[in-house]
Amino acid sequence: MSQIPGIEVLRYTAFSADPEGGNPAGVVLDASGLDDAAMLAVAAELGYSESAFLTGREEAGGEETPGGAGASGGAGASGAREYTIRYFSPKAEVPFCGHATVATALALAERDGPGDLVFGTRAGTVPVTVTREGGELRATLTSVEPDVADIAPDDLAEALAALDWPAADLDPALPPRIAFAGARHLVLAAATRERLADLRYDFARLEALMHRLDLTTLQLVWRAAPAVFHVRDPFPVGGVVEDPATGAAAAAFGAYLRAEGLVPDTALLTLHQGEDMGRPGTLTVELRAGDARVRVSGTGTRIGD
Rank of each mutant, 00 (worst) to 15 (best):
I4M: 11
E110G: 08
A152K: 02
L170I: 03
T284M: 06
E136Q: 14
E207K: 12
A252S: 01
L117Y: 15
V263E: 05
P66T: 06
E59D: 14
L213V: 02
H185K: 14
P146W: 07
R57P: 12
I303D: 05
V228L: 14
A267V: 06
G124D: 07
R258S: 06
A52Q: 03
G70E: 05
S72C: 12
T246D: 10
E59S: 07
P166K: 11
G278S: 11
A43C: 00
I151D: 09
E194W: 10
L206D: 07
G26M: 14
R111N: 00
E58L: 11
V187I: 15
A225W: 13
A69T: 14
G135D: 05
T266W: 02
E58R: 10
A109I: 04
D171G: 01
V126Y: 03
A227D: 06
S72L: 13
A168P: 13
R57E: 07
S49L: 10
T121L: 11
M1A: 14
P172Y: 04
E59K: 05
V241F: 15
G134S: 10
L215Q: 02
A44Y: 05
L141K: 01
A152S: 14
L117I: 02
G182E: 04
G70R: 13
S78W: 04
E8I: 07
E45N: 05
D112E: 10
A25Y: 00
R212H: 05
V296F: 10
P166C: 10
V187L: 09
S78E: 05
A267D: 02
E58T: 13
A267T: 09
A267R: 12
A71I: 03
V263T: 13
L268V: 01
T284E: 13
A162L: 01
G98F: 02
T140G: 10
T129S: 15
H99P: 11
A100V: 04
V94P: 07
F53I: 04
T299Q: 05
V130A: 12
A157T: 08
D35E: 12
G304K: 11
S2A: 15
H99W: 06
A149H: 09
R295A: 12
A289V: 13
E20Q: 08
P127H: 09
D169Q: 10
R177A: 04
V28S: 03
A168C: 13
V237S: 15
L170M: 06
L108F: 00
V9M: 04
A162E: 09
G290N: 11
T55C: 15
N23A: 07
P19C: 13
L156K: 00
D147N: 08
A100T: 09
M210G: 07
E110N: 04
V42Q: 06
E207T: 11
R177P: 03
E260S: 09
R295W: 05
V237R: 13
R11M: 05
A17F: 10
L215I: 04
G182Q: 14
S89K: 05
G238H: 07
I4L: 15
A60K: 09
D112L: 09
D169A: 12
A224G: 03
A259F: 13
M39W: 00
D116W: 03
L163G: 03
F15C: 12
D233Y: 08
G239V: 07
A44K: 04
D305Q: 15
A255V: 11
A179E: 06
A69I: 14
P114W: 09
